[in-house]
């Protein structure tokens, strides 16, 4: 986790991918690998942005649809779709993206904090915007992608459990 801040001093390495018409980037040190879309097993009653689980060499990891998570269009996945496997908190999860374009080195000076106009309560996962040769890259804070959603899920879960303590206990 701390490595992100260390490298930020001069340069950041990013994995850059597309979602719809936008370009996003995540810190390369958090990315395990990028794989083709595998068969995804749906899990009953999962949160709607969670596509299901896949078998990653014997490990079962959850896969989320980033477009659904960000409320972007939800057209079906294409040939270029990939699963970016990342570390979030203590979890390894897969994120479905439309296509992975490249790995970029980014001078720290190129990153600007997100405009307060853009950041709403539910979009604090945007860590900053990088400008690079006319392109805008949205930098994601991976820890916030899940946390808010997960937190609300956990709250819901706690409420549910509270209502039916008799049966849950």
């Amino acid at each position: 986790m701390a490595t992100a801040t260390d490298t930020q001093v001069q340069e950041e390495q990013l994995v850059v991918f597309e979602l719809g018409h936008e370009v996003y980037g995540v810190d390369i040190s958090r990315v395990h690998e990028i794989i083709r879309l595998a068969q995804i097993t749906r899990v009953p009653r999962a949160p709607d942005f969670v596509e299901g689980v896949i078998n990653l060499r014997g490990r079962v990891i959850p896969v989320i649809d980033l477009k659904k998570r960000f409320g972007l269009s939800t057209d079906s996945h294409s040939k270029t779709s990939r699963i970016v496997v990342v570390d979030v908190d203590d979890n390894t999860i897969g994120m479905i993206v439309d296509g992975v374009s490249e790995v970029l080195r980014l001078p720290v000076g190129a990153v600007e904090p997100p405009s307060p106009l853009v950041v709403t309560v539910d979009s604090d996962y945007v860590r900053g915007i990088a400008k690079l040769e006319e392109r805008l890259i949205i930098l994601l804070d991976l820890d916030k992608i899940l946390s808010r959603q997960q937190r609300s899920r956990l709250d819901e879960f706690a409420n549910d459990a509270g209502e039916q303590t008799g049966s849950v206990a």
């Binding site: 097993t41 999962a46 299901g52 079962v60 989320i64 979890n91 956990l154 819901e156």
Partner: peptide, 21 residues
């Protein structure tokens, strides 16, 4: 995974012989 905390009725997953979950 804890993401599926409220998947009532599912106690876990398994990997089948053909690699499917």
């Amino acid at each position: 995974n804890s993401l599926f905390a409220d998947a009532v009725g599912v106690s876990g997953v398994t990997i089948l012989g053909d690699g499917r979950v």
